[in-house]
Design a binder for these strands. Sequence first.
DNA 1: TTGAAAGCGCTACCAG
DNA 2: CTGGTAGCGCTTTCAA
Lengths: 331, 331
Amino acid sequence: MATIKDVARKAGVSTSTVSKFINGGNLRQENAETIRQAIQELDFRVNPFARGLKTQRSRSIGVLLPSMTAPYYGSVVMSLEKTLREYGYHCLISCYSAQHGLERDNLQFLISNGIDGLVYVPEDLSVEEFEELTAIRSIPVVQVDRMIQGVESDTVLVDNSEAVSNAVSRLIEKGHRRIALISGPKSVFSAKERQVGYLRALAAYGINYDDSLVVSDENTFATGYKGFGELMHQPDPPTAVVTTNYDITIGLVTAARERGLQIPRDLDIFGFDCVEICTMMHPPLPVIHQPEQQIGELAAQYLIQRLEGYTGEPRVTRLKCRIVAQEPQNI
Amino acid sequence: MATIKDVARKAGVSTSTVSKFINGGNLRQENAETIRQAIQELDFRVNPFARGLKTQRSRSIGVLLPSMTAPYYGSVVMSLEKTLREYGYHCLISCYSAQHGLERDNLQFLISNGIDGLVYVPEDLSVEEFEELTAIRSIPVVQVDRMIQGVESDTVLVDNSEAVSNAVSRLIEKGHRRIALISGPKSVFSAKERQVGYLRALAAYGINYDDSLVVSDENTFATGYKGFGELMHQPDPPTAVVTTNYDITIGLVTAARERGLQIPRDLDIFGFDCVEICTMMHPPLPVIHQPEQQIGELAAQYLIQRLEGYTGEPRVTRLKCRIVAQEPQNI
DNA sequence: TTGAAAGCGCTACCAG
DNA sequence: CTGGTAGCGCTTTCAA
């Protein structure tokens, strides 16, 4: 491993000149050229540890997620990375996949590993735990998708309850009265809010809540698939179902199709998070669409502003979801 | 940020003693206790840059993937992380999501960011590009799922062609003669191998290859969904389809169900990579199952052996896929 | 068992 | 524009 010293020696200049060259300072054309050559010949690369030790910065952003496989996170991260990259930052992703203890452990590792900022989708940690960990090194944090109540940081959420409430309202206005909900675990911030939206819409239309119409479990294909069975095998099954997650939606649709149900004739379904898929179906499934790109971009911007020294109050932004529903014309 | 010096001063010992404490050396009970207290009171944490500068190690493993959302990678990474964690390593994941140039850029960042080892699913890079990048710092690399032909590194693959060949053979033995294939892009190592398996099985049974029965496109839901239309709307449509990827399978099943086809009566489908989902269906879809856990674990072991100094020849291991097919009893 | 001291490779200050 | 130099915080000899 060549060091900056080797380069300096070979180029016949001082290390500080080389450093200046590396970091884009002004120097004589001639020197620049010699240094460039020396660097190439020695195949010199900046040692990230040494640089980090000096600058205490790594130009890396930690991204801590609950799951690797949700397309929603995939999209958010893609747009996040894109924006951060424009400012010279890279993302280091870490997932805790519902493994107990990993959320904490991975967060700790990211932070002690020298990230300059953190994008965080929380699940289990308490305010105290989170603050203890982030106290290690003081870096800007943006919470995304969910939040730990009480943690003061920039936060980018969507209006979960409004989105689901709108979906349910649409179904009610189409004449449905027995509308089911299959959602994620009650312990998860976003799932809880989505449940609230469901209740709110029912209340607004004076429809009684029937807890046999609500399934709440993990955000998986299985939940949607089995949820179908639970819901439809009761005496008075729902005529419509709202889901709150990608995998649940696919699971539900798979089960419904498998039993030969026509959607929406036999069962109306309102999906979540899977626009490409839902709009591709015949007829298209109406679906709640989160603005993933915008979420990622905003999170990146908040972070960059903090990294550049912005010190205003924490900002909590709720973006609106959109309903994508190309209803078939002949209802 | 408290440093080791602060701790030393507060505890009334030298920095080297503190360092020894941190790294688990032997010291007097009494000193250990005082240091422990000082560390706690000052909330001291090791500075990763300083440590890295000295040791040139970070205890982090870079994981470079093409996609964040494929459940296959999710499973592999989960098991990879689990094993690495037991040896005190953490994973830093980076995805290039088919974005041109990101594969190279992210690889470069990971390497110059001080990872101790790399788990890599390649796509576009040539041997030369890869070797230039990995020459930056010499770290062990394990290729997974795919390989760059000519790169000498430990590699964990599955026997793609055998797996698909077996699946196709089963269909042929059930009496199918027009068997379609919907697979990923020909440019991708694993997709190519899977296509070879398809051809091989046809040849083994003396069935002529018909290129109107082969769809090759991105590894997405859309490919499976649209592939259904392309295949079924021809004069002499297939009676069975083999897929080579999770999303393609789901897309195909969705399309088939949507047109009211009974699986397997009207169209037999052999899925890939989605055991949980396929076995849950009625009747269960037979499916090619990759040993994700084993792949992750083996990759981790190979890496750890290298990190611990093993210098034998590069090992290229092909694991077997398994066919999971709980066929309905009443065929 | 402990401590003094020498760097790891880089950046940034300051003087020239 | 350039170079000398002082550390960044830690680990690791080597002596005591």
